[in-house]
Design a protein around this nucleic acid. Structure first.
Length: 565
RNA sequence: CGGGGUAUAGCUCAGUCUGGUAGAGCGUUGCGUUUGGGACGCAAAAGUCGGGGGUUCGAAUCCCUCUGCCCCGACCA
């Protein structure tokens, strides 16, 4: 490619609404342009990168035995009614009507469509297992799109769905996908980690997220410093402390805390550590309010809380009015002592081993000191309720937990029979009996990977692409080409040679001043740069500089070709 | 959905408080000089001041209203 024939549109100024590095750099490099909130045009430059990612994903999916197909992006309401998700999916589902007032949605995911396809196509166990995938545009009407293509509303995703008669077969394909994903992210040159994930409302047996490690990531992940354990913080188990609860030694005493509502305020006021306090939250349960208690320095893990039998599948905090009606006090003074008998008291493992603790007095402006479980406060049950924190023991018993931030770029999931049952997708087994199929699903955020890579790999000058994702591997920069024909000839010759050898090369023949040209090529992150100048031509050598190198090197033609081969 | 902000040239922004001829930098076009780290000079094009309504002799500026976009929160493969 000759840059004089390409549409390169870099800009110097950072657009005002870009916050994170990848968004800023993608706009400055001219890879994307915003059309509306969460909607982006991929420019020719951006598309080259997107296609690189897509190609690697496709190769590895094919290698792993998956079969590509393509489903519609627009899907009929009736199909979504069959699984109940027309209502349950919520506001993220973009609903549209056609001219006959028939209702459709723009597909946010394709479980319904693929399962419909499977129930029509798959009749016999002999056709199983099978794994279908597509690389396709999805739309989710995110409440708050942000960070450019990192969290866009329209985005490109690879989604695969496998079908099985046995759990063993599902587990085998799941493992194959896990391996394929590892290969994909390794080939892309990304620093990533596969972490255990919560299976959410979908249920299922196993789930891993593939997280690209980056400080700007929206997900928190916990990993062990003593083993390969790693999990999304939503999933990471907080082990029960190994100590026994000490016997009560203090008397229960109500003390005035007129304006101290938060744990920090109360702890400072009373001169105790937050670890010696119990924080109580009231949430809406199936039958009235439920009390959740954690240690003062810990936080409730809403995913864990949502799984409690007493809750309706999600944890929603009670309103101030509900709390006032039940306890006669306001948030800030809640505690487990003296709650009505109708309120279940679920206590976190770490809070359950406290003795002589501080907690809310259930009346405005007071807290208890010297409170003790059983003696003063009911314990309905002890559960794992809290978010893990740095330094917690690893759930596998090896090492301590550390925290990192990640960008979720892939997710593998054993779905089980949920969708196949809802849509009656079954095949005949070897006994001639009808069996509902089990499913797995496996997603990769293709467009998000581009942003995630930049987030992980950039410097002051711009993007630093991994070789596998770069729009071109090599740029040949022509200096002062108008005045010295020999320089142009030398550049053309090198450009042709590289192209003939299958090395993806771009020739910067725009005739810009050197500074502007170098700045552009560094901004768009080309891994290898060769400068052709009068000086070099006279000496018969080439000036080479890698994107991350601090200095240029002078190379002979042979050395250069060897380096780029 | 709650709170906050913002909308002026292709981009980044002044101008709005205190009403009176529409501004700058970058980018773009032309000519010339330049050519190893985002050159310089001269000339030029470019704006329904987000939309609608109102007040006024006169509105980018004041009032009402609608909309887009951004941030924080709640939410989320």
């Amino acid at each position: 490619m000759r840059l004089s024939q390409f549409h390169l549109a870099t800009v110097k100024e950072v657009p005002a609404d870009a916050e994170i590095a990848s968004h800023q750099l993608m706009l400055r490099a001219g890879m994307i342009r915003k059309l509306a909130s969460g909607l982006y045009t991929w420019s020719p430059l951006g598309l080259r990168v997107l296609r690189k990612v897509e190609a690697i994903v496709r190769e590895e999916m094919d290698r792993a035995g998956a079969i590509e197909l393509l489903m519609p992006s627009v899907q009929p309401r009736e199909l979504w009614e069959e699984t109940g998700r027309w209502e349950k999916f919520g506001g993220q589902l973009l609903k549209i009507k056609d001219r006959k007032e028939q209702e459709f949605c723009y597909g946010p995911t394709h479980e319904e469509v693929i399962t419909d396809f499977a129930r029509n196509e798959l009749k016999s166990y002999k056709q199983l297992p099978v794994n279908f995938y597509q690389i396709q545009t999805k739309f989710r009407d995110e409440i708050r799109p942000r960070f450019g293509v990192m969290r866009a509303r329209e985005f490109l995703m690879k989604d695969a769905y496998s079908f099985h008669l046995s759990q063993e077969s599902l587990a085998a394909t799941y493992e194959a996908m896990y391996q394929a994903y590892t290969r994909i992210f390794t080939r892309l040159g990304l620093g990533f980690r596969a972490v255990q994930a919560d299976t959410g409302a979908i249920g299922g047996n196993a789930s891993h997220e593939f997280q690209v490690l980056a400080d700007s990531g929206e997900d928190a992940i916990a990993f062990s410093d003593g083993s390969d354990y790693a999990a999304n913080i939503e999933k990471a188990e907080a082990l029960a402390p190994s100590i026994q609860r000490p016997a009560p030694s203090a008397a229960l005493q109500l003390v005035d805390t007129p304006t101290q509502k938060t744990i920090d305020e109360v702890a400072a006021f009373l001169g105790v550590a937050p670890q010696q306090c119990v924080k109580t939250l009231l949430v809406r349960g199936r039958d009235g309010l439920v009390a959740l208690c954690v240690r003062g320095d810990h936080e409730i893990n809403e995913v864990k809380a949502g799984k409690l039998a007493e809750l309706p599948g999600e944890s929603a905090l009670a309103s101030e009015e509900e709390i006032l009606a039940l306890t006669g006090t306001r948030p800030g003074f809640l505690g487990p002592v003296g709650l009505p008998a109708s309120v279940p008291v679920i206590v976190d493992r770490s809070a359950a081993v406290l003795a002589d603790f501080v907690c809310g007095g259930n009346r405005d402006g007071s807290h208890y000191t010297g409170a003790n479980w059983e003696r003063d406060a009911r314990v309905t049950r002890v559960e794992d309720l809290r978010k893990v924190v740095e330094g917690d023991p690893s759930p596998d018993g090896k090492g301590l937990l550390r925290m990192a931030r990640g960008i979720e770029v892939g997710h593998v999931f054993q779905l089980g029979k949920k969708y196949a049952e809802a849509l009656k997708a079954s095949v005949l087994d070897d006994q001639g009996k009808s069996q509902v199929m089990s499913m797995g699903c496996y997603g990769i955020g293709v467009s998000r990977i581009v942003a995630a890579a930049i987030e992980q790999r950039h410097d002051e000058a711009g993007i630093v692409w991994p070789e596998a994702m770069a729009p071109w591997r090599v740029v040949v920069c022509v200096l002062n080409q108008r005045n010295v024909p020999e320089v142009t000839e030398a550049a053309e010759t090198l450009y042709r040679t590289l192209c003939e050898r299958g090395i993806e090369t771009v020739l910067d023949d725009r005739g810009l001043r050197p500074g502007a040209m170098f700045a552009d090529m560094e901004l768009i992150g080309i891994p290898h740069r060769v400068v052709i100048s009068e000086r070099g031509v006279a000496a018969g050598s080439f000036e080479y500089r890698g994107r991350s190198d601090s200095e240029s090197r002078t190379l002979s033609a042979e050395a250069l070709l060897e380096l780029l081969a």
